[in-house]
Every structure is written in C-alpha cells, then in structure tokens.
C-alpha cells in the first residue's frame, strides 16, 4: 500500500513533472483544486493513499482575465471570486449563478469551475452553463498544451478526457457579443444543499429585431455526461424565442436526454423537467439579451 503525499508545485512544468513521474512509476496521483469534492471522497468512498497535487499555487490557474475577445478563468478560482466580480456577472450572469448554486458560502470559498468539471459528475451545475457559453478547456499536458470544448471533456460518469500527464489550467469563453443573455436553472427537491435532478443552461444572441441569431443549450443530470443539445439551439435560431420556440427547444432537450431512475428522480420525471427548465432558462436568457441590447 502506498502513502499519502501532498505537493504544491508553483509552475506548470513542475506540476507536469510530478504527474509524469507518477505515471511512469504507476503510483496514484490526483489533482486538488478546492477539494470540496476530493476531500469528501477521500473520507468516504475512496480512502486509498495517493499523491495529492495542489494546483492552486500556479500562476496560470489563478488568473481571471476579461479581455475584449475572451474571458479566461483559471482552474483555481473559487466560485466566491466569480460572484464578487461585477463585470463577469454582467457578462455571464447565468454561469455565475450556476457557480453560486454550489453548496453554501463556505463551500463557494473553495469550489472551482475546474473541479466541478473535472469531477465529471453528470449533475455538475456549472458544466451545462459552460457548454451554453461555448466554454473551452485549456489543458496543460506533457506535450505542451491543448484545448477542447467543455462538452467533449466528460467522457463518462466520473471520467474525463485528461491523460495521465495532464491537468486543467483554466477555462476560456468567448466574450459574449451585444444582445446576448445566458441563464442556468436546475431542479432540486429542496431549496439548497442538494444535487440537481435535472439542469439546463441556455445562451442566446438576438439581433436588433429580437430574432435569435445564435443559441447554445447544455443539459445536465439527464445523461451519463452533461450534453450540448444542438436540436434545442436550432429550435430557437431564427425565432423571437417565444413560447412555441421555447417549447420546441424543451422537447429537443427531452429527446436528447437518456436519464436513469434513481433515488433522486425517475426517468419520466427527469425527461419532463429538463424541458421545463429549458423553457424557463430560455425565457430568462431572452430577457437578459433584450436587457443587454
């Protein structure tokens, strides 16, 4: 049996070294961001010893840049900082709201978008919102770095696309053009401290006559991984995002979903509710896009 070790590299290269060295020797290693998933797992489901690589001491994981074309959020930035950033909140309110749903204030002082994504839970709240906002993963790897759309990152329940010598540096989003609005809604049986039974993120851009010129829809907790639903986006494109278009987008979400029945909800329930969330999130996004005009 191995031992627990903790390392906190201060550069990308050092972090990659640690990962590569473990990959070579076959020892277990795991990245740590806020630890709000990892520490819970270490105390419960999987207690086996391993090396913990803290990614929070690296410059690139701690940057939050809002550029003229692009927004970059480092993998160590906790939700609380997103919530306190007025500019980000104005640009991507739905994404920030998704991050604000995670746990409680205490949890949000630590929890990151990157951790939420890398943990690869089907029910991760920020992932559908990131998909809707065309998020791109910036991945540091032994061979340099690579990028990948958020919707391609989760490959199964608890499994992501990172190779043994890779970790997530941060997330990039195109700066939303004028008259763009986003929203994320989830359903939980309680009002807080719960896991999504279904979730839906929508981002919309309207032209100056109110016609939808761009749309993205992401859904969560209704399939093994969060999904991008192009059919839902297409149902909104070219419309004024009225009730009929929203209903059609909702139907597309239901059609794209492949949920399971478990202690949190039945197949029928999840399929039905994801459509409701799509309609409601779409209406909020539309309102925001109009407000932003």
């Amino acid at each position: 049996m191995g031992e627990f070790a903790y390392v906190a590299p201060t550069s990308v290269a050092d972090a990659i070294d640690v990962l590569q060295e473990h990959a070579r020797s076959g020892r277990r290693v795991q990245a740590l961001a806020g630890g709000t998933d990892l520490l819970v797992q270490l105390r419960g489901v999987d207690k086996a010893p391993r090396t913990i690589v803290d990614v929070k001491k690296i410059e690139e994981t701690n940057r939050l840049d809002i550029g003229s074309d692009e927004i970059y959020i480092g993998a160590a930035i906790p939700s609380a900082l997103l919530n306190e950033n007025a500019e980000l909140k104005a640009l991507l309110p739905g994404l920030v709201e998704a991050a604000d749903l995670i746990g409680s204030s205490q949890i949000q002082g630590r929890a990151t978008l990157g951790g939420n994504l890398c943990n690869a839970s089907p029910a991760a709240d920020t992932t559908p919102a990131m998909i809707a906002n065309r998020g791109v993963c910036v991945i540091a790897s032994g061979g340099g770095s690579r990028e990948m759309p958020v919707e391609a990152f989760c490959t199964g329940v608890g499994v992501n696309a990172l190779a043994a010598d890779e970790f997530l540096l941060g997330l990039k989003f195109p700066r939303p053009p004028a008259r763009t609005g986003d929203a994320y809604l989830r359903f939980i049986p309680r009002t807080e401290m719960d896991i999504a039974v279904a979730g839906c993120g929508v981002s919309l851009t309207l032209d100056d006559t109110g016609v939808c010129t761009a749309a993205r829809v992401g859904i969560g907790a209704v399939a093994p991984t969060p999904l991008r639903v192009d059919a839902a986006a297409e149902a909104l494109l070219g419309t004024g995002v009225g009730d009929a278009a929203l209903a059609a987008a909702g139907v597309a979400c239901t059609a794209a979903s492949s949920p399971i029945s478990d202690k949190r909800g039945t197949v029928q329930y999840r399929r039905k509710v994801v459509a409701v969330l799509c309609r409601r999130a779409g209406a909020i996004a539309r309102g925001r896009a109009l407000g932003a005009a």
Binding site: P189, G265, T266, Q268, Y269, R271, K272
Partner: peptide
C-alpha cells in the same frame, strides 16, 4: 409528496 409523485398525479407523466 415529493415532486415526482405530485407531477405524476398531475398527469405530467
């Protein structure tokens, strides 16, 4: 009276 039970009763499947 959980949400799935109520929704099922409402006929929303």
């Amino acid at each position: 009276l959980s949400p799935p039970r109520i929704l099922a009763a409402l006929g929303g499947e």
